[in-house]
Design a protein around this nucleic acid. Structure first.
Lengths: 135, 135, 135, 135
DNA sequence: TTTT
DNA sequence: TTTT
């Protein structure tokens, strides 16, 4: 009914860029989002959120973001399950971004919202096997 | 740095209420959030998001929500990992709610924001084993 | 750079539906959003937020919402100024909705996200005089 | 019922810091949030959102932010009205921040969420005249 | 100009 | 393991 996520954090690694069989670009990365408090040992902790970005925005992400980049991500929470190679059911939760902002100086280009969701696209069916996603 | 989630959906089951060893209440439930589009077979799909609520809000949730209840949840995305009984590393993503609204008619009571995060509390350390959580 | 608003509240009146000179539908209404706390006199208070909705979503709003309806609104904050009939500069802040959910039972229809922003459209310039808006 | 705003933008001027009669700190500033599209003349446009921050966070804002600083603001939309000096009813919409992040390099300090809302405080009633606010 |  |  309503599903909105806003995050600011830093990439744990360079983004990975892939293409579906129809040539649709998909970028994935993990965002480390520091918690606003320290744990009981006084250590800083973070949540590690998997992000998926499609199409033009994916290519911008691959071009402008790298390990350590500060970024704002807006999107929706998505869950899916798949069987891994040992036949085990794996549950995945990730953020499908429709807006990614680059908050590090210098690189001026920003992704424009990529609002059509490729999973929903009838004209452009997404046929990457889910198992191909790096999460 | 910034981590905010807002969801509206329906409970897939009755919430589960537990207590930590210090007597802190924790409620957990799964929210089915319908996607704004149908899949390529024209079927309605949903994301199933695990929600954790602490303290007074947990008790309100247990009292006022049940399977099928329509609810709005505000909170932050949290990730954690644990070893399951077969020694396997399991990755969990869930929403720690600080505001839960009951959108079904009738039940007037609403949870007030429960803003102190119990994981951060030094006075009241949370010592439920994470493995006890039903996710 | 990033601009997101999520509200749940009740309409203070029936929505108003208008059309621009090119026939684009615009609905406006005010959402009363109760505050999560009472004031120092122990009274419930609310914020009254002006909402603007365009196109198909506008017509859905006009059809399905009325005074008192419970609704969730997602969108972006917009500011603009105009001179009123006495030559006075008036400052307006409103939410341009891209997603409106009907949370009252019965009416099943929901607005689908109306993601193209009409202010940005070159093909379909919006030429309602801003002074025509009821706020 | 639910009222959440997330913004990223730049300060149009240095923040203003004031104190209520009880000594509660209040900072105010305006955030220019660039729109994700250009207008029909191809010009970049922005929304100018008034922000109010209370207590410790207010002092952090005054210390660490200045004209042009990039900042993320989380909070709730608030509306209020007052009579101006000509006896005219003025309507104000602003964001009461509970989380302000400093996204410009260098300044490491970040405001911790200042979660008690001073308007709600019984122990520490806020008695600045609303007319004193710079908006 | 304000809703339940 | 999924809700209307």
């Amino acid at each position: 009914m309503l599903n909105r996520v806003v995050l600011i954090g830093r990439l744990t690694k360079d983004p990975e860029l892939r293409y579906t069989q129809n040539g649709t670009a998909v970028a994935t990365f993990t965002l480390a989002v520091n918690r606003p408090f320290t744990n009981q040992q006084g250590e800083q902790e973070a949540d590690f959120i998997n992000i998926v970005v499609w199409r033009k925005a994916a290519e911008n992400v691959a071009q402008y973001l790298k390990k350590g980049s500060l970024s704002a991500v807006e999107g929706r929470l998505q869950t899916r399950t798949y069987e891994n190679n040992e036949g085990r059911r794996i549950y995945v939760t990730e953020v499908v971004a429709d807006n990614v902002r680059f908050l590090d100086g210098g690189k001026k280009a920003e992704t424009k919202p990529d609002l059509e969701d490729p999973f929903a696209g009838e004209a452009e069916p997404v046929d990457v096997s889910e198992d191909d996603l790096p999460f």
